[in-house]
């Protein structure tokens, strides 16, 4: 199960100075690689292009699409109050007046971070449904044969709790109602969340996390009960073996006496 870093992306951190320009775009267009707080390598590249843009340069599309991973889905355009945003999970282009670039960039980083978390949680769960199916029987009854799998189950519960905690941490922002009075940044963030269906995906991921957590929680409970019973059972067996030994010796002594 993939495990995202626990640091939620609320603000995003600038991790580096502007990297490069982009071929085919004016020199004022700069690309920055900005951390979205998921992990050391988790960042988003943002192309900031100040000014009024009636026509969108094709180079912007090409640049955004070039960075998109195969499993990331299509990128999309979003226009809002004279600002244009071309977004994909790993690259985003912001075409806006210079004084609006900063707030929009902050909103994009925040939502991208949340999207990255939800996306990673979704992928983690998607990859581990077969494991859940295999482990589900242990939620009802634990057995001797499964004792050696306790470490594995413990790790899975820990990871599920970790993922559930990540979703919980971003919930106050993702599920919060629109703020009033709205700002440009808040509206961009709301629109972006809407386009990414972030609220619905967050709810669905939380639901899945509940299923995983419940299952492994029950597995843990059953395993714990089993191990406690097993320890007592062993002690009982030691007593039984000792009693049986005494009984055997007594019977054998009687047998020997009978033979004489």
């Amino acid at each position: 199960m993939k495990e995202p870093d626990h640091r939620a992306a609320s603000d995003g951190n600038r991790s580096a100075a502007p990297v490069t320009g982009v071929e085919g775009l004016p020199a004022s267009a700069i690309v920055e690689r900005l951390s979205i707080g998921i992990g050391n390598d988790d960042a988003i590249e943002i192309l900031s292009m100040p000014g009024e843009h009636l026509e969108i340069p094709r180079a912007v599309d090409a640049w955004v699409d070039a960075g998109a991973g195969a499993d990331e889905g299509p990128s999309f355009w979003m226009a809002f109050q004279g600002c244009r945003i071309r977004w994909s999970p790993s690259r985003c282009a912001i075409l806006a007046p210079a004084d609006r670039l900063g707030p929009i960039r902050g909103a994009v980083i925040e939502v991208s971070g949340h999207d990255r978390i939800v996306r990673q949680v979704e992928r983690s769960f998607e990859a581990t449904w077969p494991e859940l199916d295999a482990d589900a029987s242990l939620a009802f009854e634990f057995e001797e044969r499964a004792v050696r799998r306790r470490g594995e189950l413990r790790d899975r519960l820990r990871r599920v709790l970790h993922l559930r905690a990540l979703l919980a941490r971003i919930a106050p922002v993702v599920l919060a109602p629109p703020i009033y009075p709205p700002t440009l940044a808040s509206q961009v963030a709301d629109r972006l969340r809407e386009r990414l269906r972030l609220v619905a995906r967050h709810d669905a991921a939380s639901l899945q996390a509940d299923v995983f957590r419940d299952t492994y929680d029950m597995c843990g409970q059953r395993a714990s009960d089993f191990m406690l019973a097993r320890a007592g059972n062993r002690l009982e067996w030691v007593v039984i073996v000792l009693l049986a030994t005494q009984l055997l010796l007594w019977m054998f002594e009687y047998l020997v006496m009978a033979g004489q």
Binding site: E144, R230, N233, R234, W237, V238, V241, L242, T245
Partner: peptide, 12 residues
């Protein structure tokens, strides 16, 4: 039986 019990029986 738990492995430990078998070991105990063997030792006994």
């Amino acid at each position: 039986l738990p492995r430990e019990v078998l070991l105990l029986i063997g030792a006994v």
